[in-house]
Amino acid sequence: MCGIVGLFIKDKSLEPELGALLTDMLVTMTDRGPDSAGIAVYGNNTNQLAKLTVQSDNASDDFATLDTDLSEAIGVTVSTRQKDTHAVIEIPAAKIAEARQILSDIRPNICVMSAGDSIEIYKEVGLPKDVANRFEISNMSGSHGIGHTRMATESAVTTMGAHPFSTGADQCLVHNGSLSNHNSLRRKLIREGIHIETLNDTEVGAAYLTWKMQQGSSLGEALESSLEDLDGFFTFVVGTKDGFGVVRDPIACKPAVMAETDQYVAFGSEYRALVNLPGISDARVWEPEPATVYFWNH
């Protein structure tokens, strides 16, 4: 049970504001989710390198010599940029899989938050404003981003239980609602070889999309089939390298408001999340229909 915010920038001049706008939207949704918060930011990538965002509960030890240790192990110079408990490793895309494997050996306590050309995911336990401040989200620029504030229903309040959940390269998912068949689905997905870390229902939703896409579905098709295979209540917002999508279950009880102007498309669990966006008073504001997949692409 939660608050969701999302912002997809159409007008490039607004891109430097992405982090600040998203942070404001996220903090407004604190009441809906005071347990933990997370944010996925899709930044424009200028140096052609891929990004691996990692987290450690013991960041000072784990990150101190991470760049040299990892460079040595994979034979390519990598750079790391630490933000609080997270670090972004910049690395050639071809080396991502190898780097993940090596990381699990040389830094077993590190968790991978996201991997891809442009995505960075930051999430931690705590109030949304504190989480946003720790990672200096408001200074970030980017083309689009998704944020989430969590009120845990059944699974634990932990860093890994916070949203967004990464569903594959440059993909992520956030959720408001409660799935009712996630345990059976988790067992099925694990048998299918999908890696699942927590008992969280949303992670199953994310893993389901990953699995569907591994089977050859596009993200849009995977979302369509989620309407068939996921039971319970959900409003999902998903991010991809180029855009973001929204889908609500057929009953559509969990709130969702969208706004569109020439400059952006925005999503909020409540209208409150949108009130500080530029030009909101003249925006087209509407609620997404049940069982309907929406998508915006750059």
């Binding site: 049970m1 608050g3 809906r32 229903t153 409660s178 009880c253 669990s269």
Partner: peptide, 12 residues
């Protein structure tokens, strides 16, 4: 279910 809210975030 209640007619005008669903879940703990709405209940608040």
């Amino acid at each position: 279910r209640h007619p005008d809210w669903t879940g703990p975030d709405d209940l608040e």
